[in-house]
Design a protein around this nucleic acid. Sequence first.
RNA 1: GCGCCCUUAGCUCAGUUGGAUAGAGCAACAGCCUUCUAAGCUGUGGGUCGGUGGUUCGAAUCCACCAGGGCGCGCCA
Length: 635
Amino acid sequence: MPSTISVKRTFFQPIQRLAALYTSPHHRPHPPIRANTQTMNATDLYAHLRQTVLTALAQIIPDLPPDIAARVEVTPTRDPAHGDMATNAAMVSAKLARQPPAKIAAALVAALATAPEIEAAEAAGPGFVNLRLHPQTFRALLPIILANGEAYGDAATGAGTKINLEYVSANPTGPMHIGHCRGAVVGDALANLLTKAGYTVTKEYYINDAGAQVVALAWAAYWRYLQAIGTPLTEEEFAAEVPGGLQYKGDYLIPVGENLKATHGTSLATEHKGIAAPETWLDTVKDTTIAAMMTEVREDLRLLGVQQDIFTSERALVASGAADAVIAKLQADGLIYEGVLEPPKGKTPDDWEPRPQTLFRSTNFGDDVDRPLRKSDGSNTYFANDIAYHADKIGRGYDELIDVLGADHGGYVPRMKAAVKALSHDAVKFDAVLCQIVHILKGGVPLKMSKRAGSYVTLRDLLEEVGKDAVRFTMLTRKADAQMEFDLDQVLATTRENPVFYVQYAHARCRSVLRAAAEMFPGAALTDADLATTNVDTLDGEPELTLIRRLALWPRTVESAASAREPHRIAFFLYDLAADFHMLWNRGKDDATLRFLQADQPAATRARLVLVAATAVVIRSGLAVMGVTPVEEMR
RNA sequence: GCGCCCUUAGCUCAGUUGGAUAGAGCAACAGCCUUCUAAGCUGUGGGUCGGUGGUUCGAAUCCACCAGGGCGCGCCA
């Protein structure tokens, strides 16, 4: 199989494939490579230097194929001894050029020596080219940051790709609790992040208002209604009449019962205030109750700072016949059949009986088993309705669908992926972001949560206890797919252990310095726009440059976090940024001459204020992605 | 039994999508408060990246198998 001929074929094929991708509206893996013409307007210093390297590389290897060029990276170095940035360009192109990496690296070093941004370039290790930039190159970023404001870090990688992001989607059966909260925050921050990275994002909530749960909810509300009009029935007597038993016993349905009484008087009950025939009241009560619960949910979301664009009702979707229509469509494609599933190996349920079902051939698209679409009573499964919902989203013209789900829905992802693939003929991507469970700790002790007993921690309780910003930030201090302990005490702690505080404090300090500067230099023009024109050449200390290098990483952080769909990276970036800033600030404690504000050195002070203001801008830019409000001062 | 996720310092976790000598916080030890807010900062020690193989210039990262933890596995959504 391996032969000289096959080498040639694998050499040319990827080029054609990639060229085809560049013209497709759905796949734009990398921005087109073009000559490096602009220098001073680059907001992403790493992307800018990457273009510089590619230009230099093109001189050495004239017909560099795009797939090789796409692999060229310019990354920050881990070790300062390696300079500011390093590129793997020589190593990834060595095979193609049929030259050892070291030789290409040497040629690159020579070519890059003339670049105005670069102070020194040297070949190192297995073929890296290390770049040391002029401090001027980094400093030049500060006015750009101030001029761009919070838009600094915006990226074009999304290239307008239309993404539908579905999150929260809690059943409207009660107030939101802590379990919903993580998905809400992760989804919302991810939406902000993707938007910042250039995607066009629609934020959507799927109301699971069909099915048995909302019937149970309606019965529970009906009980509160009967209580409100003074029924002689006891709860036990009532519960005995409820199919499936009385659920949702929390107090939160009492107002709904009062409301039903106010609107309908006693007309929904029998003459003796007993249980009327369900068909006379069930739909009315269901409508009223779901509407009331969704009002609560929307209020919860508002308090959490979450605002979604579209709320789609499962009930409305089912009523429109969409589920049957989508099953018919799959049927026409030969993807539906009547069959009998094998029991799961090793764990057969006690009541297992082979049963013919309407099945979707999800195994054709990578799922493990085919999935049922109809229950034995002929009604649709949740999955069938959800396929219809995703078909609806596909019909709305999105390039990609992302669902933020609880980790217990992990097994659900492959079948939905299969369904989207089948329905869109592979044109639309489907992805899921799974959120693991959150344990609430109070004084180091886990809070038990029991929905049945009505003793669970509601989202609103949590918001009242610690506030929106702390909740949002803390929820983003872990990968979504990792279990998390949410310690109520630590979230409120004013120490470095608490990233919320630490980052907010950094921003407050920046603002505090700028306020103090306004007092020290009355009448000085100190807005970001004013400072953007300041000469910053005096910023040449190592801690200052370290901070500037961190600021330079922001656009790259946005891009990588967005493409990985990992908003938690923003929190970690901000923490690191805060640490760099606090370090700089603290130098002034040991040595008063190192403080930002020096009354006798207005020019040098002003340059430092540029750095302080730029730091504040980037912190705000990051907090905006997280949906956290920056604070002006700590009191 | 099968599938997905996870396993990194004593503890809680990062790790820039395969890069060079694996990083933070807490805890431990040694220092630092007349302030642009010490609500903090500096330094030291601490590692077989769960294990074993493989892929290649190069692996915590990709693949295979194994061990341990979590979640799920036909008419719940």
